[in-house]
Structures are given as C-alpha cells and as structure tokens.
Design a protein around this nucleic acid. Structure first.
Lengths: 204, 204
DNA sequence: GTCTATATTCCGATAGAC
DNA sequence: GTCTATCGGAATATAGAC
C-alpha cells in the first residue's frame, strides 16, 4: 500500500514522490484527515516543500487527481463492440482501473466527494461530462432519457466501488472481476439500453 | 432494551435536542467535520454539556445512530408479499426511510463509514447481520449464495443513496420515489432471486 | 446540572536561513 | 531547492466554579 517512501535526497523528481504519497494518503484517509505533514513524511520530504511546489492543500489534491484519471484512454475499448455487451465491458473496464494502482486516485476522489462539498461537485461534473455523456451519446439514446440513465449507471457503479474498495464488504471485496462483470453487467446494460417503460414508468 | 432502572439524566429534552442536532450535523458534514461545538450551538446548550452526557465524540455518534436505525420495524412489510415483488418493495422501503427525517442518521453513517475505519466496520456488520441476512434467509436462498447476493444488493442500494442524498446527482436527487422503484427494483430482484448462472458465472 | 476557563494537541500556511 | 522555526487557529477534552 505504501508507495515510494525511500529516501531521495536531491532528487529531481521529488515532485512525483509527493504526488504519489498524496494519492495514497488521500485514498486511505480522505481529504480532511490526510495531513500535509503526513504526506510529506511518507514522501521523505519536508512539509514546507509541499507548499513550495503546490501552494495549498486544495491544489495538491487537484494535482494528484488530474493525472491518473483519464477516461478518454479506455472509453474506446468500452464503446467498441456490439451494443448488447457494452454493460459488461463498462463494468470490466471500471474494475480494471480501480484494481490498478491508479485506482487509488478514484478511491480518494470518492472518499473526499462524500466529505467535502467542492469535491462532490468535482465528481459530479466529472461523471456527467467526461464519462456518462459520452457513453450514452454513443448509444444514440433519447437525449431526454440520458440524464436519468446515466445517473442510474453512476449509482450502480459507485455503489460497487464503495462496497468493494472502501467499506470492503465481503465477498465483494475479494471476488474475481469476471464474477462481478457477469453479476452487475446485465443491470448496467438495462440502465443503458433497457426498455423505456421500465426506466420511465410514470409519465405523469 | 431501554434501561428502565438507569439513573435519570437531568433534562430529557436537552439530551434529545443534542442527539437531534448531532444527527443533523453528522449527516450534513460527516463525522470529522461535525464539531461538538457546532452541535452544542445548534442544540442551544454548552459544548461541555455534551461531554457530560455522552463522554466522548465517538460515543455521541453511536448514541445518535442507535435509536433511529431499526430495520426490524419495516422489514416485515418488505418480506410480506409475493416473491417477485420483493425487489421493488425493498427499494420502496429504503427510499421511504431515507426520505424521512430518520434518514439523516443513515446518511451520517454512510458518510462517516467512508472516512473513518471503525464506522466502516460498524456499517459492514450492520448491513450483514441486521438487513441482508434476514432478507435472504426469508427467501430460502442457497446459503452459499447469500453473501454475494446480499453484497450485490448492498452495492446497488448504497450507490443509489450515495448519488441521491450525498453527491446529489441529478435527476436522481429529485426524482420521485416510484420512478426509482421501477428503475432499480428489477435489478435488485435479480440480485436476490435471479438465475444462478448469471450471478455465479465462474464455477472454477 | 450548567457553564467558564483552560490544558493539550494538531492543523495549514508563512518567513527566512542555508 | 530544501529545510528550521513559528504563527494563528480550531479541535477535543478536562477541571472546577456557580
């Protein structure tokens, strides 16, 4: 879990070490509880150096989040294929990202989105503009339905991440990815391309 | 379980006022950010009085959570009825609880479960022993399948709560309950009583 | 019982020396 | 660039006076 805590005196990429330590700390303890002092300690540098590089704790958090989360990289592989398999491919890609070291940033973002207000807005806009809209646009869904369909997918996926990586509810936490792909894939598929009368039951 | 022989506290109203303010504060700002000073201020009492009643911040949190969360009250109405409608009834009951004032305690528990370790364990054991096990027991599910089925339901429901009440993702946040019942009910139903080969696809 | 005052700890951020 | 020293603030929790 602990990243690179080795000593690196006079190293030019001290900046990367700080970002690495920041990601682990934010993911593990949330935004508030993760202190700059602890991050600096884990990175093997002085707390004041963190301020020198990033200016404030907020900017450090944003700098730690921006890089590793890049949905544009893996969205093509989700969208490429038959229409009926997009649910399972979406779940598979999500789990692959969250199981990787880069997934720590996602956990950190989710953790602090629950706690502080401005990260919640950050996560909201990220989900809406960077992920969900692209998927539903690719599926040629009715524009009027897209927000609700996208939100339902977000709810299913975030709940999966929450229980598997944060709360660590068994056997979800240690289940093989393909089991979960087969289990929740169809549900996601239904939210994306399911019949209209089930997703929009009350046209009052 | 209510202590009928316990020594009576000073003013029952002030104690309830403190618990009420605590639930609101914990739900709105999370465990760490909700200060005893702010809770005391909202309740109209002195901060030191909170310590006098509950001893510590942790115990105050536990006292605020214990009362309003009582799944035994509404589980019968979920379990009573035909087998195929239990998914929708479960979602309907959940939303009814979370939309009510008592739902603040649930939001507070979820919020702090994401941040602090011991509340995550609290939520875990609460979900497993108080909710999921009872539902699946009533359905006569294969005991070997119960943990995964229950965890999948927990993931779906917690994600719904997370997006609707915490992150406030639209249009999920302001959608009428019955819309969500019809939208996610079938998915929950599938997790509970769905075909075996979909939930357990890899018998390796 | 209730509140005032304080002890203790830890945080983010700044200024300035090597 | 990197670190030492410190400021100013807010938090929990305690001790003790009315």
């Amino acid at each position: 879990m602990s990243g690179r805590t080795g000593r690196r005196p006079g190293n030019p990429d001290t900046r990367e070490a700080i970002l690495d330590a920041a990601r682990t700390a934010f993911a593990a303890r949330g935004f508030d509880a993760a202190s700059i002092r602890a991050i600096a300690g884990a990175a093997g540098v002085d707390p004041a150096l963190v301020h020198h590089y990033f200016g404030s704790k907020d900017k450090l958090f944003l700098a730690a989040m921006n890089a590793p989360i890049d949905p544009g990289r893996l969205l093509p592989e989700v969208l490429d294929g038959d229409r009926q398999g997009i649910g399972e491919r979406l779940v598979r890609a999500f789990l692959a990202v969250w199981d990787s070291p880069a997934g720590m940033a996602g956990v950190a973002l989710l953790r602090s989105a629950v706690t502080t207000e401005w990260t919640a807005r950050l996560l909201r806009e990220f989900l809406v503009t960077q992920v969900l809209r692209r998927v539903l646009q690719h599926l040629d869904a009715d524009p009027a339905e897209r927000p609700l369909r996208g939100a339902l997918v977000a709810a299913q996926m975030s709940g999966l991440v929450l229980m598997r990586y944060v709360v660590r509810l068994e056997p979800l936490a240690s289940a093989p990815p393909e089991t979960l792909v087969a289990a929740v894939g169809p549900g996601v598929q239904r939210y994306l391309t399911g019949p209209l009368d089930e997703v929009f039951p009350l046209p009052d």
